[in-house]
Simulated assay, not measured.
Amino acid sequence: MKVIAEQPYVKVQQQIEVTGKHYVEEDRTLYLYSDRILSKYHEFPIEIVWDISYRPVGPRGGLLYLHTNRGVNVYTVKESPERFIEAFREIIK
């Protein structure tokens, strides 16, 4: 199946070591298909996704909210997800 849209996001993980607390960013991608949305570890069938919204935080980036019947999943993005959201809304029309 062909990818309709991609949205890069960042997973921030806290690591506590002897030298102190460190934050590690891992670059990941959300993939939009006509029947599902995939993240690194999750698959959301399109019929359970109610909406996708975005809230800018700071001068660059923000939070992408994936609203599903299982709850809300939040993804930290460094660039606007406008194209990804528009593609999703075209699918569910």
Rank of each mutant, 00 (worst) to 15 (best):
M1K: 12
M1Y: 01
M1E: 08
K2V: 07
K2G: 07
E6N: 04
P8M: 06
V10D: 00
Q13H: 00
Q14K: 03
I16Q: 08
E17Q: 07
G20H: 01
H22D: 04
H22V: 08
Y23E: 10
E26I: 03
E26A: 06
Y31G: 01
Y33T: 10
S34F: 02
S34G: 07
S34I: 11
D35Y: 11
I37A: 03
Y41C: 08
H42Y: 11
E43S: 15
F44G: 08
F44D: 06
P45Y: 08
P45V: 12
I46L: 15
I46N: 07
I46F: 11
V49Q: 09
V49A: 09
W50G: 03
I52P: 06
I52C: 11
S53G: 15
Y54I: 06
R55T: 15
G58D: 10
P59Y: 05
R60V: 13
R60A: 14
G61R: 11
G62L: 03
L63H: 03
L63M: 13
L66I: 03
H67E: 14
N69A: 11
G71N: 10
Y75Q: 07
T76C: 07
V77K: 00
V77F: 01
E79L: 06
S80H: 04
S80P: 02
P81G: 12
R83H: 13
F84K: 05
F88D: 00
R89W: 11
E90S: 13
I92A: 10
K93Q: 13
K93D: 12
